[in-house]
Simulated assay, not measured.
Amino acid sequence: MKRWGRIVAKRKPSARDFERHEKALKAWESLHQKLKEAGIEHVLFGSLKTGDFRAHSDIDVMVFGDLSDAEILSTEDVFSAVFREYGVKPDYLFAKHLTEKDVERILM
């Protein structure tokens, strides 16, 4: 059972928890599709992936590749558009700004 299922079984989530979780899933689907269409390699990590997502959580995304400054700005615009549309904040990291060890630690 995913952690979200265990959270639901352990405590009575509020309607806001369920609503926020559904919005986050839709936001991730939209974000994933837009980044994929732009040819930007990315991966979901954090609470939405592990099932620990709660009403206060955000969507954690790691972006890979040697993107130019213009491509980074364009990618940030995609994240902002998804936030405006769904009201769920994407939190994103660019792997090129991190050490390989940090990327591995974050994605574990």
Rank of each mutant, 00 (worst) to 15 (best):
P13I: 03
L35W: 00
W4I: 11
H21R: 15
R16T: 14
G39I: 05
R16V: 14
V103C: 02
A27R: 00
D52G: 11
L31W: 05
K10G: 09
E41L: 14
H56L: 13
L98M: 14
Y92L: 05
I59P: 01
E19S: 14
F53M: 02
L107Q: 05
R20E: 08
Q33W: 13
A38C: 04
D52Y: 10
R20S: 10
E104D: 11
K10C: 07
K12S: 12
H21E: 12
E29F: 11
E19L: 13
A38H: 06
L35R: 01
L93Y: 07
E29M: 11
H21A: 07
S30E: 15
L67Q: 00
T50H: 08
S80E: 14
S74G: 10
R105D: 13
E76F: 03
D77A: 15
F79Q: 02
E29K: 14
A15R: 13
E41S: 15
A27Q: 05
E76A: 12
L31R: 00
E71H: 03
W4M: 09
G46N: 00
R6F: 08
V61A: 03
L35Q: 01
A24D: 03
V8N: 00
K2G: 10
I59H: 00
D17Y: 11
R16I: 09
K12A: 15
K12D: 12
S47F: 04
E85G: 05
I7M: 11
E85A: 15
V82C: 06
T99E: 06
D69T: 13
S14I: 05
F79R: 01
S74L: 07
G87F: 05
T75A: 06
W4K: 08
F53G: 03
K26E: 15
L67D: 01
S30L: 13
D77P: 04
R16M: 10
E37I: 05
T99R: 04
D58V: 01
M1S: 11
E19C: 08
E104Y: 07
R16N: 10
V43R: 12
F79H: 04
K36G: 11
A95V: 06
